[in-house]
């Protein structure tokens, strides 16, 4: 059938068609502001970050210690059994060297997002965070990294209370 249709519908516009008012259009700003509850498990996680600690939760049935913590085990579908303090170091599971911010604006100094497997949690339990104090070409998967915390009195109970993770021996 596609071979029979000569001209498919769809009129392509250029960005300049808007700027030069070659076509009519209207705009709208939804102004959608939210206050998201962190919830029970992540509420505690954030509170512990303020204290300079990373906390996870453990399920006695599947014996997993997970981070970020959750109040139910999604494998066993039952409540988690205990809170477990984890280390504030781990290993790089994967990383990227990025030159674009969230809004696609380019940056000169690359941002280094990574998944970091946190020591003390079960194998493969990572969180997303940033790497710092490291040259982009020196980052390696499997590299040991340690949290660099904001000074205690600047911490507010947010994931950004950890500034970034830096390589350690």
């Amino acid at each position: 059938m596609t071979s029979k249709i000569k001209e498919f519908p769809g009129v392509a516009l250029r960005e300049s068609d808007f700027a030069e008012k070659k076509i009519l259009y209207t705009t709208w700003e939804p102004n959608a502001r939210y206050a998201w509850d962190a919830g029970i498990a992540i509420g505690r996680y954030l509170a512990e970050l303020k204290q300079g600690r990373i906390i996870g939760t453990r399920c006695h049935k599947c014996r997993r210690t997970v981070v970020p913590p959750r109040n139910f085990c999604e494998w066993c579908f039952r409540p988690m059994d205990e809170w477990v303090y984890l280390e504030d170091y781990g290993v790089v599971n994967t990383y990227s060297i990025t030159y674009v911010k969230w809004n696609m604006v380019r940056v000169e100094q690359p941002i280094l997002p990574a998944v970091i497997e946190i020591a003390g949690a079960s194998k493969g339990m990572g969180i997303m965070h940033l790497l710092g104090e490291v040259e982009p070409d020196e980052v390696k998967i499997g590299m040991k990294v340690q949290a660099v915390w904001k000074p205690a009195k600047e911490r507010v109970g947010a994931i950004t209370d950890i500034l970034y993770f830096k390589p350690v021996e």
Partner: peptide, 8 residues
């Protein structure tokens, strides 16, 4: 809570 503040 855990990811968006990092501006991914």
């Amino acid at each position: 809570s855990t990811e968006r503040p990092l501006e991914p």
